[in-house]
């Protein structure tokens, strides 16, 4: 959902030519065959989606391979490759634990604590970072992982929610379901994916008549405790709204074509105008609002028509 005017411009600006997105996908120990298979399958699915994106570099460590040594080595290597203008996405799938003091990501051999992960990520120079920790008890990892410029998403609201989670399933579903792109601008943002996955997670528990044992949080201010319903207008979710996870192939092609950049700029301008109009809706006469909205939308539709040619 487009909520603030400045976000529209941010989308174009946030896509510097030549910048890449690095995805690191980690599936920890399942403990039982059912979980092993489930975690590995989720990560495989995310890998498939990531690899289909032209500008993404995807690294995967799953099950037995996902040891602390291997993870340190991978992130160390990436820290040397990733540039500040790149984007970085870390997805943790599996079980997590919390002993009242420390969050731990359960992997073969010694686990990695929240502090360990934070230290490893500190070496990554990408100014735009997204960490999606979908494990049980992941809420406890929010505090060590948060920092300015980084979006942290957790499947649970605290370390006390210790049951296996389903958030990962819906996060990955968001990556492949066009419905997750709520504003239909051919770019799926972290905020859109979070909202989609959170809603689906909540409905899962409702429909199964089970007490919800996970309450996803998003933190992107670098200092907050995370929120369940981020609202960029209120301050939370601004970074996430500007963090593009995936773009459609058509959008990627258009952005690379200099001849179309003018049209894209006009499109962004119109979208900003629409945002501004929506922002003022409450203070406007209904008919007038509708008339102006229709005019702007019709023009936007025509620009898009041109872009499609």
């Amino acid at each position: 959902m487009r909520t603030l005017v400045r976000l529209g411009a941010a989308l174009l600006a946030a896509w510097p030519m030549g910048a890449a997105t690095y995805w690191v996908l980690l599936a920890g120990l399942g403990g039982e065959p059912e979980y092993e298979q489930r975690f590995a399958a989720w990560v495989r699915e995310a890998e498939k989606i990531g690899r289909a994106s032209a500008d993404a570099h995807v690294s995967v460590l799953s099950g037995r391979e996902a040891t602390a040594v291997a993870i340190r080595s991978l992130l160390g290597e990436l820290s040397r490759r990733i540039r500040p203008e790149d984007s970085f996405v870390l997805l943790l799938v599996g079980h997590g634990s919390f002993d009242g003091q420390q969050y731990k990501f359960n992997i073969p051999g010694p686990d990695l604590s929240g502090d360990d992960l934070a230290a490893l990520l500190a070496a990554i120079t990408a100014t735009r970072q997204l960490v999606v920790n979908t494990t049980s008890a992941s809420g406890a990892s929010l505090e060590p992982l948060r920092k300015p410029g980084r979006i942290v998403i957790t499947a649970t609201k605290s370390g006390m929610e210790k049951n296996a989670t389903v958030f990962a399933r819906y996060w990955i579903e968001a990556l492949r379901d066009a419905a997750a792109d709520a504003d239909k601008n051919d770019a799926l943002t972290a905020l859109e994916a979070f909202r989609y996955a959170s809603q689906k997670t909540a409905r899962f528990y409702e429909s199964q008549k089970r007490l919800a044992t996970e309450h996803p949080l998003l933190e992107d201010t670098g200092q907050g405790a995370g929120v369940r319903s981020p609202d960029p207008a209120g301050g939370s979710g601004r970074l996430a709204a500007a963090f593009v996870l995936l773009r459609s192939a058509q959008a990627q092609a258009a952005a690379r074509d200099p001849a179309r950049r003018a049209l894209l700029a006009r499109k962004e301008a119109l979208e900003q105008e629409i945002d501004l109009l929506k922002y003022r809706k409450a203070a406007m006469d209904g008919a007038e609002y509708r008339k102006r909205l229709t005019a702007l939308l019709v023009e936007l539709a025509r620009v898009n028509e041109e872009l499609e040619k």
Partner: peptide, 14 residues
């Protein structure tokens, strides 16, 4: 209004 860039809806609007 929710998704200004929604192409199929734009086509219908036109």
């Amino acid at each position: 209004e929710t998704a200004p860039g929604f192409r199929p809806a734009q086509k219908l609007l036109l």
